[in-house]
Deep mutational scan, measured.
Amino acid sequence: DDLEQFAKQFKQRRIKLGFTQADVGLALGTLYGNVFSQTTICRFEALQLSFKNMCKLKPLLNKWLEEAD
């Protein structure tokens, strides 16, 4: 599944880049005006958010990865 794959890759890249889940949540706030909690990022990576929320977060996290690289 696409979302599952993305969540896995996101977590690996985030760790490799040296960011915590909280860092990502704050960075999203800075970039897009939407601060996300560490818990939200954690749940995303664990696929524990609703499908709708996963779909909403994915493009933001994808963009963040591009910026962070």
Rank of each mutant, 00 (worst) to 15 (best):
L61Q: 02
I15F: 09
E66Y: 04
L49P: 04
E66A: 05
E66N: 15
K58I: 07
S37K: 06
F51R: 14
F10H: 02
L47N: 15
N34M: 10
N34R: 13
K16F: 05
F10D: 00
K56N: 07
T20H: 04
W64Q: 02
S50F: 03
D2A: 15
A46P: 01
Y32S: 15
Q48C: 03
F44I: 03
L26K: 12
K16E: 08
W64V: 09
G29I: 07
D69E: 10
T30K: 15
L3Y: 09
A7G: 07
N34E: 15
E67W: 07
K16S: 08
L49A: 07
L31W: 08
N53L: 11
D69P: 11
Q38M: 06
S37E: 08
L49G: 07
L31K: 11
Y32T: 06
F19D: 08
F19V: 10
R14G: 01
K63C: 11
K16A: 13
Q12I: 05
L3V: 08
Q38K: 10
A68Q: 05
Q48P: 02
Q21E: 12
Q38I: 06
Q9L: 10
N53S: 09
F10P: 01
G33I: 04
D23E: 13
E45F: 05
Q12C: 07
L60K: 08
K11T: 08
L61F: 01
A68V: 15
Y32V: 05
W64M: 02
L65M: 10
Y32M: 04
S50D: 12
L26M: 14
G33L: 01
K56P: 01
N53I: 11
F51I: 06
F51S: 13
W64A: 03
Q12A: 12
G25T: 08
K63F: 11
D23W: 02
C55M: 13
L28K: 04
E67K: 13
L3Q: 07
F10Q: 04
T20G: 05
Q48K: 10
Q48N: 11
T20V: 00
L3G: 03
Q9A: 09
G29W: 07
F36K: 08
P59K: 09
T39D: 14
A7R: 04
S50N: 01
L47C: 14
C55A: 13
F36L: 12
T20Q: 01
D23V: 00
G25A: 15
G25W: 00
F10K: 08
E45H: 04
Q38F: 08
L3A: 00
V24R: 02
L31M: 11
F44H: 00
G25L: 01
K8E: 13
N53Y: 08
R43C: 07
L47G: 13
N53P: 05
F44A: 00
L31H: 10
K8M: 12
A22H: 15
K63P: 02
P59M: 09
V35M: 09
R14S: 02
M54I: 01
T30R: 12
A27Y: 06
T20M: 04
A22F: 09
I15L: 09
G25P: 00
L60V: 09
F36V: 14
F19R: 07
A46N: 05
K58A: 08
S37N: 08
V35Q: 14
G29A: 14
L57V: 06
T20A: 05
K16V: 02
S50C: 02
Q9E: 14
A7V: 12
G29F: 08
A22V: 06
L65F: 04
T39P: 05
F10G: 09
L31F: 13
L31G: 05
L31S: 11
P59R: 08
A22T: 11
N34S: 15
A46R: 09
K16M: 09
V35L: 07
E67T: 11
S50P: 14
N53G: 11
K52N: 12
I15K: 08
L65C: 01
P59L: 08
R14V: 03
E45K: 04
T40I: 06
L47Y: 11
Q48D: 04
K63Y: 06
R13K: 12
T39Q: 12
P59S: 07
V24A: 04
E45R: 01
F51W: 05
N62C: 10
K56Q: 06
E45M: 02
F44V: 04
L17D: 04
E45V: 00
V35T: 15
K58E: 00
V35E: 15
T39C: 13
K56A: 10
Q48V: 00
K16D: 12
K63I: 04
K63Q: 12
E66C: 13
C42S: 11
N53K: 15
L49Q: 01
A27I: 03
F19I: 15
L31Q: 11
L31Y: 08
L17F: 13
